[in-house]
Every structure is written in structure tokens, then in C-alpha cells.
Write a protein that binds this DNA or RNA. Structure first.
Lengths: 181, 181
DNA sequence: GTCTATACACTGATAGAC
DNA sequence: GTCTATCAGTGTATAGAC
């Protein structure tokens, strides 16, 4: 049984946006791959931006949920390590990884997009939860980098002759050291 | 005495590309701000991509120079720390900082651009120089992040109520710890 | 050498027919 | 739900004025 058109549009769009870039991917391209016309896309999504919005929604919700959880806990080393593990587990799901990669690669193109602004705010809030009020500049910067380390681990896949598993474990170890600094 | 048109095009283009994104900035926009027509831009640059290429050239050359320098030295902790300091000094110059920021923000849009591919290769080579042959996965990932830390310090300017100087010093300290891991 | 005028194929988007 | 037709605006290109 075939999926509905809306879902197929999202899948093709996410793939092409990530591979070629958001602006470099035309609606005609997406439509042709699906065997429909541009106008058909406009029945399912109001604008091109709207396709992006639909992709980002779930991801933002999960990060905000993670922030909520962190706020119920004291800002201790234990909380920080738990937060890292929850974030990594979340990132490990293929659909989320794809969306995150897409967003990282298309920052400027999507700069003014309301959903993207929400996403950025959520990530900032998450970073804030990794530092206690009296943290030094070195601690703040080092902890911001912990999340970057987890992303970097995912992008590095199949490089340097390391296995995917080695990279995942190593980047988690680096992230852990960064929040413990 | 007024600068020549070519230089003014580069300045306006770099600013608009960074602020709004590469694809979101039209040649008409650049031309209007300079008080000329689109066609005038085509006298000075063959294509829109060509404007980017001219901006990136110097930056790539300097990174490759840094790689050359590193290759003449043993891969020791001392070399790594020197490399960081040279890279940071290089990054501190306003023109380079702007170009680097522009490139980071427009990765996908410029994906296939030959100059960008050279830039990416140069950064990979630089990262490679930060690890000795027998380095563990944790060491490799941690050292790649050192360069990211220096960039992050620059982007973070005027946030969290920290002064620019505090941030610069702190991110250098984090970078140093990352290469010493 | 420096620029203007003009044209071309393509883009995101809309209106209306089936 | 999908189509055809059409719009203004885009990057690109060239012919020709000075």
C-alpha cells in the first residue's frame, strides 16, 4: 500500500534539501521525482518554507521536552551527564539525525524562518541548562561544545578508518569530558 | 579617493551574503546598493560564483600555508599548541573572520564550488596535523573540535554577558585542553 | 575598459478548470 | 487532488554605447 502524497513530498524534499541545499533544490525537481506537477505540491503545502516547517516541528518539540525535563532537576554534574545521554539517544533516531543535519547545513538559507528561530532558542535553552549560574566562561564554552561534539560524531561517520561504533563511543566520551570540565 | 568598483562589489557581496545568505542575495540587490546595473557586475566577475571564489582565495591560501608549516614540524603537543595559536591569530583578522563566517553559514549552498572543496580539504589537512599516527578515536575527535572551539568563541561574541576578551581567552583555553587530551 | 539595454530560461507562487 | 496557464523576479549572457 502506497504512502500518501504528503508524506512522499516530505521524504523527497528532506533528501534533496540535505544533498543539494534548500535554495538549490527547486519545487519542479521534487515534483518531477514524484511524477506530479509543481502546482500539486501547493495543494499539500502553502509554500516551500512550509515543507521545511513540517519537517522541523517534531524535532523542536522533542528538544523543548528535553529542556523541560532538565528544568525539573538541579544543575549538577549528574544532570549534565544524563542530559547528554538523552540528547544522544534522541539524535540516534534516523529521522531526527536527517533533520538535524539538514538544519545545520542550511542555517543561513533558513535564517528568518520562525520554526528555525524556535529551534535555535530551544538549543540555546538546552545549552543554558548545562551550566550552573556561577559557571566560568571556560566552563560555559566547553559545555556548549559538548552538544557540538555529539553532532560532529555523527557527521564524521566512515572517515579516518574508524567504525561507526568507535566514533559514537569516542564522541560521547569527549562530550562527557567537556561537560565535566 | 574612492576604491575601485571591483573591491566595492566584493565588500557589499560579502556583507549581504553573510547577512541574508548566498542564494537569498540577488545580483540586482548588490548592483543597486552600488548604484550600477547587474550587467556591470558581469564585467568584473564572470558569474555569481566567481564573486565567492575571489573572496575565498586568500583565506584558502593562508590555511594551506599553515598546513605546510605544520608538515615541517613533528606532531608533538608543542606543535599542536603553536598551530592553534597561529590559527587563532589568523582568524582574528576582520576580513578572514567575515569570510570564515560566510563559508560556515553557507556550506550547502556552495557545496559543489571548487574553491569550497579546496577550502574543506585544507581544513581536513589542518585537522590531520593535530593528530599523531597512533592517536585514539577520542583524541582524534577531541582535536578536531579544538578548531571548532576557536570558531565558536568568535560567533559567541556579546552573549551571556561575557566580554569579547573573556570569550576569546576562554575559547582558546578550551581549545588548548582539547588538543592536550 | 567600463558600463547600459535587452533578452533568455528558470524559479516560487497563484488562479481556475477538471 | 491534480492539472494548465500565467505572473514577477532570478542568474546568466550578449550586443553595443562611450
Amino acid at each position: 500500500m502506497r504512502e500518501d502524497t504528503r508524506t512522499r513530498i516530505q521524504e523527497v524534499a528532506l533528501r534533496l534539501f540535505t544533498e543539494q541545499g534548500y535554495e538549490a533544490t527547486s519545487l519542479r525537481e521534487i515534483a518531477e521525482e514524484l511524477g506530479v506537477t509543481k502546482a500539486a505540491l501547493y495543494y499539500h503545502f502553502k509554500t516551500k518554507d512550509d515543507i521545511v516547517a513540517s519537517l522541523v516541528d517534531l524535532r523542536v518539540a522533542e528538544i523543548e521536552e528535553l529542556v523541560e525535563w532538565a528544568r525539573t532537576r538541579p544543575r549538577t554534574p549528574e544532570t549534565r551527564r544524563s542530559l547528554l545521554e538523552r540528547y544522544a539517544a534522541n539524535l540516534a533516531r534516523p529521522s531526527h539525525l536527517e533533520v538535524t543535519r539538514f538544519l545545520e547545513r542550511n542555517q543561513t538559507a533558513l535564517r528568518a524562518h520562525p520554526k528555525l528561530i524556535k529551534m535555535r532558542e530551544a538549543m540555546l535553552a538546552l545549552t543554558a541548562e548545562l551550566s550552573e549560574p556561577g559557571a566560568t566562561p571556560v566552563e560555559r564554552i566547553s559545555r556548549s561544545l559538548a552538544l557540538v561534539a555529539l553532532h560532529a560524531g555523527k557527521w564524521m561517520t566512515a572517515q579516518d578508518g574508524l567504525t561507526e561504533d568507535e566514533i559514537a563511543k569516542a564522541s560521547m566520551e569527549v562530550a562527557r569530558r567537556l561537560v565535566d570540565m
